[in-house]
Amino acid sequence: MTRHKSSTRDGLAAAGIGLRSAHVAEIMETRPAIGFLEVHAENYMTGSPAVAALEDLRHDYPISIHGVGLSLGSAGALDREHLLRLRTLVDRIEPDLVSEHLSWSGLPSIYLNDLLPLPYTDESLEVVSDHVDEAQAALGRRILIENPSVYLRFRHSTIAESEFLVELVRRTGCGILCDINNLYVNADNFGFDPWAYLAALPVRAIGEIHLAGHHRADVDGRSILIDDHGSAVSKPVWDLYAHALDRFGPKPTLIEWDSSLPALPVLLAEAHYADRIGAMQAAERRTRAVA
């Protein structure tokens, strides 16, 4: 069996893709060259054959486990049962990366299947910090927290999102999963400078980068960007990615594509394009260092 495991001490050298069920059989059979595979934790919490397939694939690829349901931003206690299921999965798969979101998903016994926005306040910072502490203790490892795409902001927010993340990192020792598409979508929808946002993030905390597609939609007469992971990465997001790499250096990068899923080669081409941008940025950084 060909081994493509490309994990290095500095992280996952080549770009990865989100593993979606429609592609599993083809990946199992052809074992294409991919830097790593990322799965949504919640799709692997039963005894389904998908878990066995992942256990097989983890021998050939570094795995990233990306949670969408822990609801770190919910007031009150974390769902311990869900955290336990996540721990069982992490123990079983031994992933290279584990990540979750700066968001909340419902109330006790109501799961809205969405990443809902938080007011960025001292109270929220305390809640999220406590929950990140608890999750990291339960999992016995550092987790990465992703900046979400948001479609509403609260009047009583007092902290900028980037500052909120910086403080969360300082308090909990967590890392940041910097989603460039989410950042681009938010910056466009709310009219702020994504470069300044990137400049505020601590380089050493960045553990992963996400790239995805978005589309423009008309919502009650206003045109906004919706982060739907349903198309190729757009030109301005690639540009912002290149700028992020210039600032952060090489980071494990993932192509997310969840709806209107393309054929596997299309997804692989996106990942290889990310690798090319990474190589170009690395060369530029070397040139600058010499000069």
Binding site: L152, N189, F190, R222
Partner: peptide, 18 residues
């Protein structure tokens, strides 16, 4: 609604996205 910043759109429309 009154807790949501307008940012150029009706809060109800923003909630409807979710």
């Amino acid at each position: 609604s009154e807790l949501i910043a307008g940012d150029g759109m009706d809060p109800a429309s923003r909630l409807r996205i979710y």
